[in-house]
Each structure stands twice: as C-alpha cells, then as structure tokens.
Simulated scan of single mutants.
Amino acid sequence: MYGKDEQFFGTNGTGGPAYEPVKIAVLDSDISPKHLKPFRMRIKARENFAGGQQNAADTDHGTTVAQLVLKACPTAHVYVAQVTKLNSFGESAVDAEAAAKAIEYAADPTGWGVDIITMSFGWTHVNKRISEALSFAKQHGVLMFASTTNYGFTETNSILYPGRAQEVICVDAAEDTGQLAGFAIEDIIQGRIERFSAPGLGIKSAISGESMDGSSFACPLAAGIAALALEFARQIPLCGSKSVQEAVQQREGMVRILREMSKLNSSSSSRFLCPWELLGDDDGVYGGDGRPGSARYFVAYRFVRLLRQEFGSDIGKEIFP
C-alpha cells in the first residue's frame, strides 16, 4: 500500500501531492479518548446524536470498534457518532432516530462528508427512517458496512437490518482462519445477499483487554479494508482517473474489489476478506513506483478491469486506453 520507505503514505507517489485521507464514520456507543490516545490526531469529530446517557461500561464497544478501524487503515480519519442511550431497562441500546440522523449527517457534504460508514448494530425489522437515511447516503456515494447477526437462525430475520439493506455491504464474523463463527449463518438465500466476513473472534477489548466476539468487530475491519482500496485508488497511477475514483466509491464497484480480495469457504456463502490477495506483492519489492511494468501498475490494471466488468469499458481509459 505505502511502498518502500512509505513513499506512498499519504501521497500520490514519491514527491507527489497529498491525497485526501479516507473519512470513516463509526456509528456506535461513545468512545474513551484515553484508550485511543495513540490515534487522537486521526479522530476528527465526536458527537452524540442520541442525546441521552449511556452506561459508562458500554464505551468499551464503541472504543474497540473505532480502534479496529484506525488500525486497519493507518491513514484514515475517523468521525465518531454516538447513537446509543439508556432504555427503560437501564441498558444502552441503539436509538434508530439517532442512527438515521448520524447517517445523514455523516454522508452530507455540508456535515462530515465521509466516504465510509460502519454500523455494528441491527434490528430484525426494517426501519423507515433508517431506510431513508441509507438512500440519502447512497446518493452521496457513501459506502456502508453493517454487521449481520450474532444469533444465527434464532432471529426471525436471520440477517439483521440494515445489514440486509440493498445499499449496505454486510459482514459476518469469522475465525482468523476464515471459518465462519459458530453464531453466524452458515448458508442462506435471503434475497441472495452477498456477504463478506472478517475476523470477529477473540478480539482484544480496547479498554478492559478482555476477549470479545461478534460480527460487531468484523464489520469495522471490513470497512478499514475498503478504506485501503479507496486509498490505493487515490495513489499513482489510479489517481489520474476520475472515472475510477467515482466507480470505486459506489457499492457495486467496491463489491467487485472485495470479491477479488477474498476467498469463498466451500462450506459457507460468506467470502473471507484477504486483502493481500489483491494488494500484495509476491516479489517483496513494495510494488514499485507505479510505472508500467511494476507490481503497483499491474494491480491498478486489475482494479480497472474489475470496475469495467461492472460499469463498462470507459472506466479508467485515462490510464489504460
């Protein structure tokens, strides 16, 4: 991703101009800034959309989710949206109206104007306000990721909403070997939803240090991997193509890219994300400088070829006629 001596870290290339960092909104509980201190310069905003209080212990979830995003994409800027508050049982729960407002504000160019939204929550039912917000975000070219479920087939609708919404890329939890977690859905034809998976077992809590499991933690890792793909498109040579920039920001384009950097387990319908399958360099020379003949140039061509399968032959013609 960043080349030898990190000449591509935050720039188009050696001596090139800086590219716009990928902006990711994390919709979750509040965070503990103390436990994210090493990343403080990359946390650009923190806002409470729910308006109420939450249990202090629940910041563990949001802090861990935010940390996973920050680690997965080392240059991304993160915007934290608290969408949880105490319910009548004294427990912190996601407030649907708060989540809808957060999605809209995160996607709006006059708000945060993010590239990616990650949502580690869901309901069994479709929520109209959330649906409206998802549609708004898609219109603004925002990629959205949501966790699938931690309950297998015990829920009425196995893949939770918004994970099963057509605008969203849904993410399962898996072991680090790629095997789906025991609480995931092994196989389902629910609307022929394409699913991806990422490590979600044995995740170390950012606050307590305890081991945590759930698709909640796989989801931000998938969002971070997508951010790496967006970053690559902002580096040489793809930075010279506006059509590539627009295509990779669309859900359909990103799904094509994620398919290429994932593996399908024969016993599951969920593809395990392996970013090195696309963004790796077998020769171990950091991909070169992006000029013709370099590994980076070849990977860029693979990006374009994949996007052309979805959007047509005009994609990337500025670079690859």
Results as ranks from 00 to 15, higher is better:
195 R>N: 04
25 A>V: 11
37 K>H: 03
259 R>W: 13
99 A>Q: 05
216 S>Q: 13
48 N>K: 12
265 N>D: 15
152 G>C: 12
50 A>D: 00
78 V>A: 14
162 P>Y: 10
86 L>A: 03
26 V>H: 06
148 T>P: 07
86 L>V: 11
119 M>A: 12
255 V>Q: 05
195 R>V: 09
209 G>A: 13
197 S>M: 01
166 Q>G: 06
281 D>V: 15
54 Q>C: 04
203 I>L: 08
131 S>D: 15
249 Q>S: 01
282 D>V: 14
244 V>I: 01
270 S>T: 09
260 E>N: 00
65 V>S: 03
178 G>S: 08
302 R>C: 02
276 W>Q: 08
155 E>G: 12
274 C>H: 02
12 N>K: 15
61 H>C: 01
38 P>F: 09
87 N>Q: 08
245 Q>Y: 00
70 L>Q: 10
282 D>N: 11
204 K>S: 06
109 P>H: 07
184 A>P: 04
267 S>E: 09
117 I>S: 12
39 F>P: 05
165 A>Q: 09
268 S>P: 03
181 A>N: 05
175 E>R: 08
159 I>L: 14
206 A>V: 01
190 Q>R: 01
219 C>L: 10
75 T>W: 02
285 V>A: 07
147 S>G: 14
312 G>P: 14
38 P>L: 01
280 G>C: 06
223 A>I: 05
293 G>I: 11
62 G>K: 13
163 G>H: 10
132 E>P: 08
